[in-house]
Design a protein around this nucleic acid. Structure first.
Length: 696
RNA sequence: GCCCAAAUAGCUCAGCUGGUUAGAGCGCUGCAUUCACAUUGCAGAGGUCACUGGUUCAAAUCCAGUUUUGGGCACCA
């Protein structure tokens, strides 16, 4: 009797992912399996990939989105839809500029020693290298996206489309340039939109400073220069006698000033002493007060974060240092009544550097969002876009209802320059700024399709699903809705699925600075792409974060191996018989009956789960059937279902084979590599599994 | 301050529209190897489903409140 283990010399006892994955991906690509094809008679299904930043390696968050989107893509392709998954690469504005500046720093260089052109050229080369790296990593994950239409977000066609939108919005009065108090990062020397500001609670000393007979409370004594007024609430009894009068006040420079007391509703009588002085150039409320009362707006702090000459002897000092020095001098001069050290308040931080945002008065381009938001709200209320999980519908609406105008100009070099949008308009043409990267990304669904060709836009817009991280709900998703409705008159996607963040094993956010980043490439090398996909999937529920599930990737690897051996076993039982020579599978024994019913039920369950984006449950269902019904029970039963010659009888062989085929088909979207590798070993196979029909 | 979500086995979580002894993976205990697979199989221990009240013939599941945890939003000097 031949040793069963050596009877199949080219079918080793265990599955080694690394030996198969690259070759299988090449097989798919060569066959053109990722293309939607030309049959416009079929229903279309499309996903725009959130373009990964072309500035480094993929991280686990990418692995998760690739997995989820690839499942939907493969599932719909097998279901017979005309399926398109559009890949892309993001220039990622400030993100890349920061990464690239760090690289320069390591080389002992700085962008301030370079011309803008030189910087741009080098950053371009940097992103192009990273783009290739990133694409190779996408392939490792098994992403079945249509590479033939991949775009970079700085491609000329993309840039031209963004300019066209800008011009249209300008003509429609939806864009204006205005001098406003904006969120300014001293570290990166650029303004931000409100979303790039993080708010944290902090304890800072609250200084009570005497202005002659009136005392005001402030946390920022360093801004107390060039003041002309003290502001109180009009109904505040304590100060009513002073309103409209002037008081003489000695200040930190030693001079005595005439200060006028004015009244404004913006003052909260219960805060501090109920009186304050204002710094219109560095505070949005103060700015509004100054405008209402026609007061001068005098900058105190420069764009380098240092005190301006108006601060006298404190000029040139950084803000933090100046605050301490000025408070000290005030104390020497007896100007400070008291200091409350327990005062806690909210401070805005730059989301990248975590340093305080310095509100600055700067001319910037703004998008007037109210009219756009109105349409978005209507569309969301009418469920033209469905959210998964659905709680995001309300979150989205709340945010849209409180939206303020959007600052889209950035003082960085890496990005789409604003000036060329309207070279004949001096207001635009002389602007040295670049667009907020989200202004262009917000147009991505239509722009990416249009760049591929007008028929893509016709056939695939609105896209079927937008799948991305829940951290991008406002930053990206909402902006796509606002701008998609504006430019195309249609929502950009019908459904939004938001996944959670992949945290480190201790439940902390992964970040380079913490050194807890786990590389998907390493995990794929260790367990195989299918196993990494399996682990991520089985752990992920819509919208919620989860810790890196390495044990589940082990489970995924084991499952791939199980599947491998199930196939190996069944091919042995066929013993040379071809599937076409076997009877139509019909139940004879109870075990037959159960397994045939169960596979049907399981596949129905997978369908239902996937339609509702319940990825983990879908995978769990086919996993449990395969392992615990089919392998543990039916394969064992089959060992006793022999014919006269002592081999597995024809009827049983037919059930084994047909069920195996059904399993491979059902599992393919989740674990594409091992299922394709096994399909390629089946007798009488028809091409590739990736292009097989879901319906057997 | 406002909003949202979650609370189920030692750990990580499933449990979709309420219905028989509450599930999985990992971990733990015992047993099994010339058997497709030790990346395995079989058996087992382990849960007052956060708390209180309500709706119902029936609640882990629906409702209200409480507690705790996580997240988001927020220009009070």
């Amino acid at each position: 009797m031949p040793d069963q283990n050596t009877a199949q010399p080219d079918f080793p006892k265990s599955y080694t992912a690394a030996e198969h994955e690259a070759a299988i991906y090449a097989l798919w690509e060569k066959a053109g399996a990722f293309s939607p094809g030309a049959d416009t008679g079929k229903p279309s299904f499309s996903i725009i990939m959130p373009p990964p930043n072309a500035n480094g390696n993929l991280h686990m968050g990418h692995s998760l989105f690739i997995t989820l989107q690839d499942i939907l893509t493969r599932y719909h392709r097998m279901k017979g839809d005309r399926t398109l998954w559009v890949p892309g690469a993001d220039h990622a504005g400030i993100e890349t500029q920061v990464v690239f500046e760090k690289k320069l720093e390591k080389e002992g260089r700085s962008r301030f020693q370079m011309t803008r052109e030189q910087f741009y050229q080098e950053a371009w080369e940097f992103t192009q290298e990273n783009k290739q790296n990133m694409e190779a990593q996408l392939r490792m994950h098994g992403a079945s996206c249509d590479w033939s239409i991949e775009r970079f977000t700085l491609d000329p066609k993309v840039v031209e489309a963004v300019y066209a939108t800008f011009r249209k919005m300008y003509a429609d009065g939806l864009i204006y340039r205005g001098e406003r108090i904006v969120n300014y990062s001293v570290k990166y020397r650029t303004a931000y939109s409100d979303l790039e500001v993080e708010h944290v609670e902090r304890q800072d000393p609250l200084y009570y400073i005497k202005y002659g007979p009136i005392t005001v409370a402030t946390v920022r004594p360093e801004t107390k220069f060039g003041e002309k007024v003290i502001v109180v609430h009009p109904d505040d009894e304590r100060y009513r006698q002073w309103i409209g009068k002037t008081v003489r006040a000695k200040i930190v420079t030693g001079e005595e000033l005439e200060m006028t007391v004015i009244a404004d509703e913006a003052i909260k009588p219960e805060f501090g002493t109920g009186a304050m002085t204002i710094t219109p150039a560095h505070d949005p409320i103060d700015f509004e007060i100054a405008r209402r009362h026609n007061l001068p707006i005098i900058p105190i702090i420069g764009l380098d974060g240092k005190m301006l000459p108006i601060a006298g002897e404190f000029a040139g000092m950084k803000v933090e240092a100046a605050r301490a020095a000025i408070a000290g001098r005030m104390q020497e001069l007896g100007l400070i009544e008291k200091i409350d050290p327990t005062y806690t308040h909210i401070v805005g931080l730059c989301y990248k550097s975590k340093q305080p945002i310095e509100p600055m008065l700067m001319p910037q381009w703004f998008v007037k969002v109210a009219p756009l938001a109105e349409r978005a709200i209507a569309a969301i209320e009418a469920d033209e876009i469905e959210f998964y999980p659905k709680s995001y519908k309300k979150i989205q609406l709340d945010w849209l209802r409180n939206l303020k105008d959007w600052n889209i100009s950035r003082q960085i070099w890496w990005g789409i320059p604003i000036a060329p949008a309207m070279p004949d308009n001096p207001e635009v043409a002389n602007d040295p700024d670049t667009f907020d990267t989200w202004f262009s990304s917000g147009q991505w669904p239509a722009v990416a399709l249009q760049a591929a060709g007008d028929r893509y836009l016709q056939d695939f817009y609105p896209t079927s699903v937008m799948e991305t991280g829940h951290d991008l709900i406002f930053l990206w998703v909402t902006r796509m809705i606002l701008l998609g409705l504006y430019t195309q008159n249609k929502v950009p996607f019908k459904k939004v699925y938001l996944h959670g963040l992949v945290l480190d094993p201790l439940g902390k956010k992964m970040s380079k600075s913490k050194g807890n980043v786990v590389s998907p490439v390493d995990l794929i090398a260790k367990y195989g792409a299918d196993a990494v996909r399996f682990g991520l999937l089985i752990s992920s529920a819509a919208g919620s974060n989860f810790s890196l599930p390495e044990e589940k990737m082990v489970g995924g690897r084991n499952f791939a191996n199980k599947l491998w051996n199930i196939t190996r076993f069944i091919l042995m039982q066929l013993d040379g018989r071809l599937p076409s020579q076997l009877p139509v599978p019909t139940a004879v024994t109870d075990a037959d009956k159960t397994v045939l019913e169960q596979i049907k039920k399981t596949r129905k369950g997978v369908d239902a789960h996937l339609e509702q984006f319940r990825f983990a449950q879908a995978l769990q269902a086919i996993h449990d059937f395969t392992w615990h019904q089919f392998a543990d029970i039916y394969l064992e039963a089959a060992k006793n279902q022999k014919d006269d010659t002592g081999r597995t009888d024809d009827q049983t062989a037919a059930i084994l084979f047909s069920t195996l085929r059904a399993i491979l088909t059902t599992l393919h979207p989740f674990m594409p590599f091992v299922t394709e590798a096994l399909y390629q070993r089946l007798p009488e196979r028809d091409g590739l599994l990736i292009t097989q029909s879901w319906h057997e």
